[in-house]
Amino acid sequence: MQKITALTFAVTCAITGQAFAESHVDRTGWPDSFTVGTASQGGTFFAYGSGWANLVAEELGVSGGGEVTGGPMQNMALVHTGDVQFGMTTMGPAAESLAGTNPIAPGLQMTNACAMFPMYQTPFSVTALSSSGITSIADIPAGARIGFGPAGSTSDTYFPRMMETLGVDFERRNGGWSDLGGQLQDGLLDVIAFAAGVPVPAVSQLEVQTDVNIIEFTEEEQAKIIEAFPVSAFEISAEAYTTLEAPARSVSMWNFAIANCDLPASFVNAAVDVVMSDNERMVNIHRAATSTLPENWDKNAVLKWHPGAAQWFKENAGADIPDSMIHGM
């Protein structure tokens, strides 16, 4: 795994770290450093996760950074075991992990990963080169080589099933988003099926280098997927990509930041405060963070909340979180 640390930590530790240490927050039990499990380079999880990791490190004066992982499924496992302190997951993989059906560790109920804060919705979108002539799901030829992202990712877990539900016959390929984008451009793939916050960095890069088609679902396709999977209707805004001239019909699944449930409540509370108290800074990290808002706390109906996070949302967002949904209560 590749770790992206907070490069500015040494400078900010003397300033923000000292200021934070002089505050009345109880730092008992705080770790000396922390890691945020993200996903592969070129995807939104990596950019978003590395950004908020660095932001928290700078503000709290604790060394920390993002780490490349296999995405939501692996992050649930890493946070549950405490191999990383924080991570990011999607509600579908989270539910499977709690039920013990995470393919990384079948039978293990990953109940020591707690909800931390709402991130954004993950739209499911399909991209092909314009030169392929593929402009709709129905255009995808039998036996098409489709890249579904890293093995075990949200995209790899759900998009192949969605394609099968829509009657698409394909060869399944896996890899990091940047790598798959290069393969599409080189003609080694016919289609990439992305499940990532928009704009997906790999798609934005492709737009700069070549002409692409961002393929939306028809109303009938969208309805069929919503009926079969834990997703909701979503529109990718026309402003997300230069290629789009109008919003693109899609489906989406919510993402949440997660914390190891055994972390000190004061540490998690302070980290949540850094992220949730200034949305403009988060949007500067990634545009998907426009949905990283306190009022979206209610989009979690799967994971138990970390006590420190629950306290923040109760006090600052009027969250009505029942005790049964808070870890340890």
Rank of each mutant, 00 (worst) to 15 (best):
N174C: 09
D169E: 15
V198A: 15
V212N: 05
E219W: 10
M163A: 11
Q185I: 09
R249K: 11
E216A: 11
E164V: 13
I258G: 03
L244V: 12
E235A: 11
T243E: 13
K224E: 10
S178H: 10
A246S: 15
E227I: 00
A223H: 02
V168K: 06
S204T: 15
W254M: 12
A223M: 02
L244Y: 10
G175K: 00
R161W: 11
G187Q: 01
A248E: 08
I192R: 02
S250T: 13
F194H: 12
I225C: 06
G182W: 10
D186H: 07
G182V: 12
G175Y: 06
T165R: 14
N174S: 11
G176S: 04
E164F: 04
A233Q: 03
I192S: 01
S237M: 12
Q205F: 14
Y241E: 11
T242H: 14
S252W: 02
I192P: 02
V251N: 05
E216R: 07
G175C: 06
F229K: 02
E216L: 06
N260Y: 02
L189D: 05
V200N: 13
I192H: 01
T165H: 07
L206R: 06
I225F: 02
Q185G: 13
S204N: 15
D179G: 08
E164C: 07
M253Y: 13
P160W: 03
E235G: 08
K224V: 12
T165C: 14
N255G: 05
I226S: 02
V208E: 09
A233T: 00
N255A: 13
Y241I: 10
P160L: 00
A259I: 05
P199W: 06
F159M: 13
F229P: 03
A193C: 09
P230F: 06
G187M: 08
A259K: 00
